[in-house]
Amino acid sequence: MNYTHLTQEERYQIYALLREGFSKRHIALRLECAPSTICREIKRNRNRNAYFAQHAHKLAKTRHNSNHKTVDPAVWKQVKSYLALQSSPEQIASHIAVSMHSIYRYIPQDKIKEGHLYQHLRFRSQRKRKYGHPETRGKLNNRRSIHERPQIIHQRSRFGDLEIDTIVGKNHQQSLVSIVDRKTGYLWLKKCSTRKSQDVREATVDLLHPIKEELQTITADNGKEFSLHKQIADELGIEFYFADPYSAWQRGTNENTNGLIRQYIRKGSNLNDYSDEYIAEITYRLNHHPRKRLGFKSPSQVLLQEHGVALQMLI
């Protein structure tokens, strides 16, 4: 088998399988490519000592772009100010005459000179599992597969098709319930004292009940914290679906948003150290942050423009 360029979806598969402890040879068999392809991909496109799909794909695209031009120092001063405000290179490039690839090249050069710009980038933490350990989260009863979802959900043409996940705190003792709308990217975030299914159910219903009439579907991963999915679906009047195992890309909106949240709450943090007010501030910032796929509008802007008064309480 010859080496070929990997797609973004294949990189998400690599990321998900690595998280679950599978070997590079096993991943190569799953992707039907040579083990050397997987080894080369991880070695060339990893971030520090870990591999993240989104970062790897951006790095690969940047490497293929060999064009380089000198940028005025005044422009770099603007770039630095935007980075300090925690804007991504892609968002900065939409406002300043410099490509995001140039920004990504500039940041490691700054780090070599003992600069601190790299600290403003959104690095997603990786949950490590020991190799050879099987999946222990168990099977969920009455689980409806993502493949049963209506085709319209894939089009992102309506508000109310949601993705849900939990972000784990220190020693897996606390969690954040993270819910994102697929169309607008609007985020709901709430802290739970545990990861137990009852706490996750209560947080989910509490967050979404005010707009239950607007909701359509919700899609989760296969964690045991969603074992009360039928109760959630009944209380909110929506359809509940589950992604395939090791398929994080099937909930890409949620995965990407969780990466943004990790910019404010690092992996291993004790969530009890963060107040509800701080969680609300994170939610507000992300909901008012411009997104490329929204034409650099914020989720709140899109939500207000398309749903008006009915959802103004959330803006």
Rank of each mutant, 00 (worst) to 15 (best):
P210C: 02
L294K: 01
T217C: 11
N67Y: 10
A84K: 09
T257P: 01
Y131A: 15
R144Q: 12
R25D: 14
Y246M: 02
A233S: 11
I96G: 01
Y82Q: 06
A56R: 00
I279H: 05
P35N: 13
R63E: 08
Q54D: 15
W249K: 06
I92M: 03
Y12V: 00
I107E: 09
L208A: 00
H26C: 04
H147T: 12
H154Q: 14
V205E: 03
H101E: 14
D181M: 01
Y51K: 10
L31K: 03
D199K: 05
L228N: 08
H172W: 07
H133L: 14
L208C: 03
E32V: 08
I232Q: 03
R124A: 13
Y241I: 09
H120R: 10
L59P: 00
K190T: 13
D181H: 03
Q198S: 13
T184E: 03
S36T: 15
I112L: 10
S197G: 00
R48H: 13
R40Q: 12
R25M: 06
A50Q: 13
V205H: 07
R182H: 05
V177Y: 05
K190D: 12
R30F: 13
D221M: 05
S298C: 03
K43N: 12
E255R: 01
R40N: 12
R195S: 12
E20F: 05
G160W: 10
V168S: 02
R158D: 07
Y246Q: 15
G169R: 00
E306S: 04
A16Q: 01
W188K: 05
S23K: 12
H57C: 11
S300V: 02
F159D: 00
H68A: 08
L31C: 11
A203E: 06
H288T: 07
I38G: 01
R129Y: 14
R158L: 14
M313Q: 11
K113T: 10
R19E: 14
S247H: 01
N270R: 07
H154F: 15
N67F: 05
I167L: 15
K43A: 15
F296T: 01
S197N: 06
T70H: 10
V168T: 12
T204W: 04
V75Y: 00
G252M: 12
Q86F: 06
N142A: 09
H133W: 07
R19I: 09
G295S: 02
I152L: 05
V168Q: 02
L294E: 05
K130Q: 15
Y3H: 01
N141C: 06
S66T: 10
Y15L: 00
K267S: 13
H288I: 07
D72V: 02
E214Y: 11
R25S: 09
S175H: 04
R291P: 04
N142G: 11
S298L: 05
L271F: 15
A74Y: 08
E135P: 04
I265W: 06
V302A: 04
S175K: 02
H120D: 07
V200D: 07
S36V: 08
R122D: 11
K224N: 15
T253K: 13
I218V: 14
H289F: 12
D206T: 15
K69D: 05
A16S: 14
I211Y: 11
T253I: 00
S81N: 13
T166V: 14
K224L: 11
Q174D: 14
V200R: 08
L215A: 00
I152M: 06
E235F: 07
R201K: 13
V75W: 04
